[in-house]
Amino acid sequence: MQGAIEPTSDTAAVAEAHHEEHHDFRVIGLITFLCSEFLMFAGFFVIFLVYRSAAAEWPPEETEIELLLPAINTIILVASSFVIHYGDTAVKQNNVKGLRKWYAITAAMGAIFLAGQIYEYMNLGYGLTTNLFSNCFYLLTGFHGLHVFIGLLLILGVLWRSRREGHYGAEKHTGVEMAEIYWHFVDVVWIVLFSIIYLLTLV
């Protein structure tokens, strides 16, 4: 919508005067939204834990889970959260090249995570409908995977936009920051998810 009308210098000044108090609340808006989204994951976690506590055997025989690949995946995802922060630091120093480099690496790590997840699904030998555990397992990891995918799209969006000279800079990086916050969120959710689905099977 913006830029559809070419304002004259006079009207532009007036319009600006009208908008001078409009701060950019997008970052706290996103954080508020993520609080809400976290509650949805929390709902799923509680469901998982309640079913786990009620079951005689969890996971039941024939639906055991693999631990090595998800552990590697966890390391990749957690590391990517640090990598993306380098990109954010770079753009704040007006280093768009650095931003592009670190965000590209993050995107690659995210893609590897998703590929690993798909590989894991294909090698598990049971599907969504096998039993209550597999219901929960696929739903939770799948729902998280969907969020990784969205985060990946956000990062690719930042990369796409950063091609244009001056789109991001030391003073103008809200979009970069939002993609980073979302990525951290996806990471934190994964840590909880990995703990309760995978690590708890060791207990």
Binding site: C35, L39, I47, N135
Partner: peptide
């Protein structure tokens, strides 16, 4: 609304599945 609605959404997704 912010804190309770997502929990309903979680329940309804399960019902849909």
């Amino acid at each position: 609304a912010l804190f309770s609605t997502p929990v309903l959404a979680a329940g309804l997704v399960l019902l849909l599945f």
